[in-house]
Design a protein around this nucleic acid. Structure first.
Length: 449
RNA sequence: CGGAGCAUAGCUCAGCCUGGUAGAGCACUGGUUUUGGGUACCAGGGGUCGCAAGUUCGAAUCUUGCUGCUCCGACCA
């Protein structure tokens, strides 16, 4: 993509509404525009990141055996009356009336609807286990939205729902999602720690929150330092097999948020030098809630004896529009964002330092073509402006690598390649430049881990 | 929802106290500069001062109401 033809209205100064660093950087890097409190337009740069995050989630969900579908944003109130949540949910639920005076709502979540889809189509235990998920916009009319898309009213969420014959099978489904989540966050360059969670209004008795450690996190967390170095289940993990050992490895050590912390237990179980007290951002939550919805809503299957039994369910959420700022909170510096390659809007900034120089332009154009052919996602800064502004833009938007091309280097047949994260600069010959980048970028995509 | 604050150009802000023809920097347009970490200069365009009433000869400025946004608290993916 040529920057001169792209839409990237970066801001030199920080809009005053933005408080935390991810919100400031998302506005400055032209990822977002606020339309109202808690409502945001995703500008091209931000949308590219959102879609990359979505693609990783879909890949890992699919691998774990979940099947993607898409449910509507608006739902009929009657469905929610069946579960009793139409009245139980407070003003957080946005209620609307259609032209026929029917009560509708903008979905804050989809347990009821998925249950209705399940019950009208699945009748036999032979069709279980089943895990259906979708990635759809939700709305919760928060009293106080804040921190940009970290806590917005409209948000994009992946929610998966598992259906099983009994609790034992449902726990296996829970484990599949648990493992898929570990892999999902890892692929985005994050370390997310599962912590025992309250089950909240959704209900149930088995639940974990996945927390990303970040200085600017919204809640305090306590955990065993050893969790930070736990190995991630590999790409070829057998989702049909027993995943208990992976889950145990990740849950046997103490980890809790400030709402759930038992200080005495924390101090008893974790040696002093391994105690981590930090801030964290919740980026996902998994629940087992049994027959809470299947029973009142009549989602039953025939078991092996021909008896109608309510199915055991779990739900598994990941907030995509929260994950994007969470990644920024975990990865930035004073100059801007530092994207992990796997979610970067582009992998490389190709910077032409001298747009007035014919030789330099020709060389940049040629490199752009070569890089594109090599499958590297390039944002080519071909704008007619000073070098300082280009460097500042590249650092701000945080593409993982920069290829800096100017007459000075070209005299020696060289370009400079800068690693955004480490700041390391390397002069590389024109002939080797593409290979140099491929060697670094390809493994960092984390597509084969 | 309780408490606090803000609203003037695309962005950051000054002007308001003490009413008198609306400003700066950045951004934008045209030109000079060809600049390796937001280069310098010249010339321009752009705002019914959030909305509505009131006070006044006269309101960005004073008064009242409304709306929007932000922060702290309670709540939350």
């Amino acid at each position: 993509m040529r920057l001169s033809k792209y839409f990237l209205p970066v801001l030199k100064e920080t809009p005053k509404e933005a408080e935390i660093v991810s919100h400031r950087l998302m506005l400055r890097a032209a990822m977002l525009k606020q339309e109202a409190s808690g409502l945001y337009a995703w500008l091209p740069m931000g949308y590219r990141v959102l879609r990359k995050v979505q693609a990783i989630i879909e890949q890992e969900q699919d691998r774990a055996g979940a099947i993607e579908l898409l449910m509507p944003t608006l739902q009929p109130a009657d469905l929610w009356r069946e579960s009793g949540r139409y009245d139980a949910y407070g003003k957080e639920m946005l209620r609307v009336t259609d032209r026929h005076e029917r009560n509708m709502l903008y979905g804050p979540t989809n347990e009821e609807m998925i249950t209705s889809i399940f019950r009208s189509n699945v009748k036999s235990y032979k069709d279980l286990p089943l895990n259906l998920y979708h990635i759809q916009w939700k709305f919760r009319d928060e009293i106080r939205p804040r921190f940009g898309t970290m806590r917005s009213r409209e948000f994009l969420m992946k929610d998966a729902y598992s259906f099983d014959l009994d609790k034992e099978a449902s726990v296996k489904s829970y484990h599949r999602m648990f493992v898929a989540y570990l892999r999902t966050y890892y692929r985005m360059g994050l370390t997310a720690i599962p912590m025992q969670a309250e089950t909240g209004p959704i209900g149930g008795d088995l639940s974990h929150e996945f927390i990303v450690l970040a200085d600017t996190g919204e809640s305090g967390v306590f955990c065993d330092k050893a969790l930070l170095d736990q190995p991630i289940p590999p790409k070829d993990v057998d989702y049909d097999g027993d995943l208990t050992s992976y889950v145990n490895d990740w849950t046997k050590m103490y980890a809790a948020t400030e709402d759930m912390i038992d200080m005495d237990k924390f101090q008893a179980e974790v040696p002093e030098d391994r105690r981590v007290e930090a801030r964290g951002i919740e980026v996902g939550q998994v629940f087992y809630f049994g027959t809470k919805y299947s029973e009142p809503m009549g989602a039953t299957v025939a078991d092996a004896n021909g008896q109608e039994v309510p199915v055991h369910m779990g739900s598994y959420g990941i907030g995509l529009t929260r994950l994007v700022p969470a990644i920024i909170e975990a990865s930035h510096d004073d100059d801007g964002i530092i994207w992990p390659v796997s979610v970067a809007p582009f992998e490389l900034a190709l910077i032409n330092l001298k747009t007035g120089d014919e030789g330099c332009v020709a060389q940049c154009d040629a490199l752009y073509k070569q890089l594109d052919n090599a499958g590297i996602e390039v944002l080519y800064d071909d704008r007619d402006m000073g070098a300082g502004g280009k460097f500042a833009t590249a650092d701000l938007i945080g593409l993982p690598y920069q290829m800096i091309v100017g007459p000075r280097g070209l005299k020696n047949n060289e370009v400079e390649i800068k690693n955004r994260k480490t700041g390391e600069r390397t002069n590389v010959s024109l002939e080797q430049a593409v290979d140099f980048l491929l060697e670094r970028i390809v493994p960092e995509r984390r597509q084969d881990v």
